[in-house]
């Protein structure tokens, strides 16, 4: 069972940051290929995001799986909404949907 306090903390992280990635490692040094994919795509699109290193927080690692009924890390959230894991992010990126989605959410800084 996941502690309610952990779920509350995750909720608060997701609600107080526009773009959040729960990942293994950090945005600069991802420690897993799947987390790395999400970091690279967001970097490429120039999106600012908050990385949460679940390797440093075992309770968040387990909690975030229960939080959104998703069994794996990484997990991308935009404006409180769960977008998907690495496969979904990659697929959306390859089909050009991710950029549109992020722009619609107002989290993409358009180049002038």
């Amino acid at each position: 069972m996941t502690d309610q306090a952990v779920l509350d903390e995750i909720k608060s992280i997701v609600e107080s940051n526009d773009v959040v990635v729960f990942m293994k490692g950090t945005p600069t040094f991802p420690q897993c290929g799947f987390s790395s994919v999400v970091a690279q795509v967001l970097d490429y699109l120039g999106v600012k995001y908050q990385g949460v290193n679940v390797l440093e927080r075992q309770e968040i690692r387990e909690g975030v799986k229960a939080f959104t009924d998703w069994p794996t890390i990484p997990q991308l959230y935009v404006k409180g909404e769960f977008v998907g894991g690495a496969d979904i992010v990659r697929e959306m990126f390859e089909q050009g949907e991710l950029k549109t989605y992020l722009a619609d959410k107002g989290v993409l800084e358009e180049a002038a």
């Binding site: 009924d69 998703w70 069994p71 794996t72 769960f82 977008v83 998907g84 894991g85 496969d87 979904i88 697929e91 959306m92």
Partner: peptide, 14 residues
Amino acid sequence: NRVARHRAVNAAVD
């Protein structure tokens, strides 16, 4: 949608 499809696959092999 994608999330629902992936959830269904993950649930099957849970």
